[in-house]
């Protein structure tokens, strides 16, 4: 209980300081929007229906891209972990892309896929798929060899060892990959929309920044931040539920 109180107090305190700074320190409204102004802009956007439309568009881009990246990334990770030839061929590319700021290639994806949601979906996939591959592969490779031996001693086939030992053992890593993917995916949505879009929260941010409408800009960022926090927390919950043995 104590911890919840401190957390809430910290958030409220932070917001109060931000409000104070916005009114009395950085008085130029072009540089900083106060929490109150941002929330008021949020309310306006909601009443105009602008916010809902943007959330739907960005939401589609995020969830479709995230889903595809997770499924494909997990499958590829399972393949690279299980077959050395595949791993040798793919690993230099996977490591290379993971380490590079490929999000900078967003304009290129706009060129290829157009200004609709599919270019943004592509950006999200490009950001989420690599940690998924790497985490899944790590999960399989970190399977406790003693557990594998125990299964072998009962005469388990390679398929059975994969199904009954490697896969459940890698679950914590896969879920950690999901958790990491959330933040990256949201970045992908925003940057993709900044590169070229007809709607969405990143689109709103872009418009707002061009006319220096700070409250609207801040409001959009707040919505994205909230989505990130909620999704990350949801995956943490999932992690605790599905893999309780990893303290």
């Amino acid at each position: 209980m104590q911890r919840v109180v401190v957390t809430i107090a910290s958030v409220i305190g932070g917001l109060a300081i931000w409000e104070f700074i916005g009114h009395y320190v950085v008085k130029n409204a072009l540089f900083l929007a106060t929490p109150s102004a941002s929330l008021s802009a949020l309310g306006d956007m909601w009443h105009q229906g602008v916010l809902q439309k943007a959330i739907v568009i960005s939401g589609e881009e995020f969830f479709i891209g995230f889903f595809i990246a997770v499924v494909a990334g997990t499958l590829i990770g399972l393949l690279t972990a299980s077959f050395q030839n595949i791993s040798l061929v793919l690993t230099p590319w996977i490591s290379g892309f993971y380490a590079s700021p490929i999000v900078a290639l967003a304009p290129l994806l706009i060129l290829w896929f157009g200004v609709g949601i599919w270019s943004k979906i592509a950006v999200v996939i490009s950001l989420v798929i690599f940690p998924m591959i790497i985490n899944t592969e790590a999960g399989i490779k970190h399977t406790d060899p003693q557990l594998i031996e125990a299964a072998r001693s009962f005469g388990a086939s390679k398929m059975q060892i994969f199904e009954k030992v490697a896969l459940p053992s890698s679950l914590p890593y896969i879920i950690a990959g999901l958790r990491l993917g959330v933040g990256r995916g949201l970045i992908g949505v925003v940057i993709g929309e900044l590169a070229g879009a007809r709607g969405g929260l990143g689109f709103l941010i872009n418009n707002a920044s061009q006319v220096f409408n700070m409250p609207q800009l801040f409001a959009s960022v707040i919505v994205l931040a909230t989505a990130g926090i909620v999704l990350t927390a949801a995956f943490q919950r999932l992690e605790r539920m599905l893999v309780p043995w990893k303290a």
């Binding site: 406790d144 003693q146 557990l147 031996e149 125990a150 001693s153 009954k164 030992v165 459940p168 053992s169 679950l171 893999v243 043995w245």
Partner: peptide
């Protein structure tokens, strides 16, 4: 086979 280390599946 009963192994020295307990090779039980934690899940």
């Amino acid at each position: 086979f009963v192994f020295q280390a307990d090779s039980l599946q934690p899940w």
